[in-house]
Amino acid sequence: MKILSLNILDIVQNSIRAKADKISIEITESVKNDLYRIVVTDNGTRIPVDIHENITDISEATRTKRKMGSGLPLLKYYTEMTGGNLIIESIEGKGTQVKATFSFSHKDRQLLGDIAGIVIILISVNPDIDFIYRHFTDKGNYRFSTKETKEYLGLNTLNSRSLLEDLGSMIGENLKEIEASGFVFRQSLKEVF
């Protein structure tokens, strides 16, 4: 996977599978501190202890038992390429936190990509999950929450295509405002198809 937003999509799948109903994605980037950090936190069931030990070992990604795959090992590999690390904490009754830290300036650090598109996909296919997306840069920060959006608009679902497209461009415009790095903003598939 060449871009970070796809890795985020992949990690969030784990949270969805753990039956989380609240998932937070937090990106912190700082040129000053040479830091690029992605934190995905959920309130799902915890990772079983026997699995947790080897969860980032790609040789444990089995085809037959199908308990774990290659998503986390890959992410770990990408962080370590830049001199960073991957920390996974999982607590019974609280949930799981995956913290991937990269060096901002390292040439092997991937770019973020179309994160707004990823958030929109997640909202549209998981209407019952609360998503919080936060992005911190040296210039400022942005916060998007599906729950707050629903409350503000007085809707109980965001599942309307035109609304989701507007939300996507809202997230994109805000990321531009705070000068998020490596982020691609594509308004619609029209350009692709």
Binding site: L6, G71, L74
Partner: peptide, 24 residues
């Protein structure tokens, strides 16, 4: 299918395509 294998092969674009075109 949106596991690591699917995402790496472009499931995101396919997903966006279906979401948008089925509606359109």
């Amino acid at each position: 299918a949106m596991a690591t294998c699917g995402i790496a092969s472009g499931a995101k674009t396919v997903m966006e395509f279906f979401l948008e075109q089925l509606d359109r």
